[in-house]
C-alpha cells in the first residue's frame, strides 16, 4: 500500500524531469540553429561580400531554382543510379569475402593484411587511378566506388560473422534443433545487427564516393554540378548542391535506416533493459 502511494509521485516527477529534459534539449537545439543562421545572415549582410558568403535566403532561392528547373531530378537520378549499381556489387563482394575470412582460418591469414591496407588507402586514390585507366564514363566510376567501399563491408562481415556464438550453435546441434530453426533463431538474429551497420555505412560511404568520382569525371550527377559551380567560382551554387547532398544523406539515414534498424533490433530491447 505504502509503496503504491509512494510510487505515483515518483513516477510523476520522473515524467516531469523527462519532459524538462526534452524541453531543454529542444531549447538548446533551437538556440544553436538560430545562432548559426543569425551569424551567417549578419556576416553575409555586413561583413563580407555576398559573392563570398551568400545569405541563407539567396542559397534557398538557388535551391528552389535548381529544383524547379529539373536539374535536381536529373543529376540526382544519375548519382543515385551509380550508387545503387555499385552498392549491389560492393555489398555482395564484401559480404562474400568477409564471411569467407570469418569461416576459414586460411583465407583470413591470406587476406588480412590486404584488407587493412585497402582500408587505409584513401578512396580518392582508387578514383583517380581507375578514372585514368578506364576514362570517366562507363564502368570506371562504379569500379572506383566498389574498390573503395568493398573493404569496409568485408571488415564488417569478417568481424560480425566471427561474433556468431558457436556455443549456441553447438547447443543447437546437441539438442538436435532443426536446421531451419538454428538458422532462424540463432544465425539470422546474430547477423542482423552488423548487416545493418554494413548497409548503413556502405550507403553513406558509397554516396560520398559517388559524388567524389563525379567531381573528377563524368557528365551528370551532384558531384558534376558541384564541379561546374566550383569552376564558375560560385559559392552560392556549391553550397546549394552541397545542401542537397547533405539533405539526402540525412533523409536516407533518418527516414529509412534508423527506423528499419530499430524494427529489426526490437528483440534486443528486453535484453538491455
Amino acid at each position: 500500500m505504502t509503496t503504491r502511494t509512494g510510487s505515483a509521485p515518483v513516477a510523476a516527477s520522473k515524467q516531469e524531469a523527462h519532459a524538462a529534459d526534452r524541453r531543454m534539449r529542444w531549447t538548446g537545439r533551437i538556440a544553436a540553429w538560430v545562432l548559426l543562421l543569425g551569424v551567417w545572415q549578419l556576416l553575409s549582410s555586413y561583413v563580407v561580400e555576398s559573392f563570398i558568403l551568400p545569405s541563407p535566403a539567396i542559397i534557398f532561392d538557388k535551391m528552389v531554382e535548381i529544383a524547379q528547373s529539373g536539374l535536381l531530378l536529373k543529376n540526382f537520378g544519375a548519382s543515385l543510379n551509380k550508387l545503387v549499381q555499385s552498392f549491389a556489387i560492393f555489398f555482395a563482394l564484401g559480404a562474400a569475402i568477409g564471411t569467407l575470412m570469418a569461416v576459414s582460418r586460411w583465407w583470413e591469414d591470406f587476406l588480412r593484411d590486404s584488407v587493412s591496407l585497402a582500408i587505409s588507402l584513401p578512396g580518392l586514390v582508387y578514383i583517380l587511378i581507375l578514372l585514368l585507366i578506364f576514362g570517366s564514363r562507363g564502368i570506371a566510376p562504379i569500379a572506383a566506388v566498389v574498390a573503395a567501399v568493398a573493404p569496409y563491408v568485408t571488415l564488417q562481415f569478417w568481424e560480425g560473422v566471427k561474433g556468431v556464438s558457436t556455443d549456441l550453435l553447438d547447443m543447437g546441434t546437441a539438442f538436435e534443433v532443426k536446421r531451419w530453426h538454428v538458422i532462424r533463431h540463432i544465425i539470422i538474429p546474430a547477423l542482423i545487427p552488423f548487416t545493418f551497420t554494413a548497409v548503413t555505412h556502405g550507403f553513406s560511404l558509397g554516396w560520398r564516393l559517388v559524388v567524389l568520382t563525379e567531381l573528377f569525371g563524368g557528365s551528370a550527377g551532384i558531384g558534376f554540378q558541384m564541379r561546374t559551380e566550383f569552376g564558375r567560382f560560385s559559392v552560392r551554387g556549391v553550397i546549394a548542391w552541397a545542401l542537397f547532398f547533405f539533405v539526402f544523406s540525412l533523409l536516407l539515414d533518418r527516414m529509412i535506416f534508423a527506423p528499419l534498424s530499430k524494427r529489426a533490433l526490437r528483440w534486443r530491447e528486453g535484453e538491455t533493459a
Binding site: R29, A31, A32, L36, F246, S249, L250
Partner: peptide
C-alpha cells in the same frame, strides 16, 4: 543540448 547538432552535422559533413 546546444552543441549536439553542430557536432552531428560536422560528423556527417564530408571533407570534400
Amino acid at each position: 543540448a546546444f552543441a549536439r547538432d553542430y557536432v552531428v552535422a560536422s560528423l556527417v559533413l564530408p571533407g570534400l
